[in-house]
Amino acid sequence: MFFRKPAQQQQRNRWIPIAIFIGPVMVYYLAFMIYPFFATIYYSFNTITPVQGALTTSFVGLKNYISLFNDKVFLLSVKNTLIWSVVGPALEMTTALTLAFLIYFKVPLHRFYRTAWFTPLLVSGVIVGLVFRWIFNNEWGLLNASLRAVGLEGWALNWLGRRDTPLMVVIFVHYWATFGYSMVLLLAGLSAIPEELLDAAKVDGASLLQTVMRIMIPMLWPTFITVLILSFIGKMRAFHVVWALTGGGPMHFTETVATYVQKRAFGWSTLDLGYPSAMAVLWFGVVMLGVGLINRWLKHRVEY
């Protein structure tokens, strides 16, 4: 004999596996994402001071936030990060889109290119930083050695020891390391465009350029916006490459908000997490604002 279980019990039974599957992830998420997030907000309104053998947390209201606007290094790091978040995605999206089309249209050796262009992404940011520190070494670095070898002595610069070039170098290295990711996402977007549409365009006599401009790019636009936002967020939080390549120097010329938060939190001979927390919270707001603006400006252009 078979009996159907009561509906309530069935409902309960259905929750058990759901809880088992989601539970560990939720615990992880709550412990390592949600709690630190709210703790950071909490600490940003406080100062933690060691006094006579104990850590004391004192509420200081908006003092940490106000101090940020008088902190020259913070303002410089904001400027650097904003420059990067404009230049970086522009460079990255242009290259990634071009390369994605090249691979999509199966130019000769396209399989090799796909692998080659994606490979930098597989290398750790720290390793990338260290390798490029060698490449940009003023004395024996690959770049300067090559320039000197072809008689361009004057172009061989102390790339990481000047006022004007270090930020460009860092932006370039990060771009080199990450454009493959954007390219792959865009390639996936291109591959998802229905073949029928392209065939129909061909039948209607559309040229390749017309097909790209009138069909493929509009169809790719939602993916493009997503990739652009990911790229923008990546630049706003850039850390590893900078840390390994320049450490934010010289004289904070390559400092980003992320590296400065790290320095203030762990390298400032203080145990105060309040001030760096304020930086992190403020920057979180700026990133959210930036993402919102990108969405607002570009989303309405999604038309088919």
Binding site: G161, R163, M251, W268, S269
Partner: peptide, 23 residues
């Protein structure tokens, strides 16, 4: 032993800036 702010300026100005003619 130095406080953090001064240590940072020593690093950025005396260790990085002055030797490279950035300041």
């Amino acid at each position: 032993a130095r406080c953090g702010g001064f240590n940072d300026v020593v690093t950025s100005v005396l260790n990085e800036g002055l030797p490279q003619n950035l300041v």
